[in-house]
């Protein structure tokens, strides 16, 4: 089970985090992990959820006109 540190989460897009989060939750819910592994994964999932909320809180739309000669 690869561990995810905070720095590597910061490099991911919202979509990529959500994909990892869903995978993590499935694994956590499967019950196939040891208690120690479950605790590690639980912390990772919570970190990812926090990061997703941060991304949503700080999101700012970018608007461009690719046909505008300026």
């Amino acid at each position: 089970m690869p561990e995810l540190d905070k720095d590597s989460i910061n490099d991911l897009s919202y979509e990529e985090i959500v994909v990892k989060l869903n995978d993590g939750m499935k694994l956590l819910e499967s019950g196939d992990l040891t208690l120690e592994q479950s605790i590690v994964l639980y912390k990772e999932c919570m970190t990812m959820i926090t990061k997703c909320n941060e991304i949503l809180d700080n999101a700012e739309i970018v608007i461009k006109d690719i046909t505008d000669p300026r």
């Binding site: 939750m25 956590l28 019950g31 479950s38 639980y42 999932c45 997703c52 909320n53 949503l56």
Partner: peptide
Amino acid sequence: DCEMLRHDLSRNVITVNNALLRKIDVN
């Protein structure tokens, strides 16, 4: 919709909490 995404994230918190509690109970 961001609001739906936030709602989903809240549900995810409950899901991972429950999963860990289940694991602890099983142990």
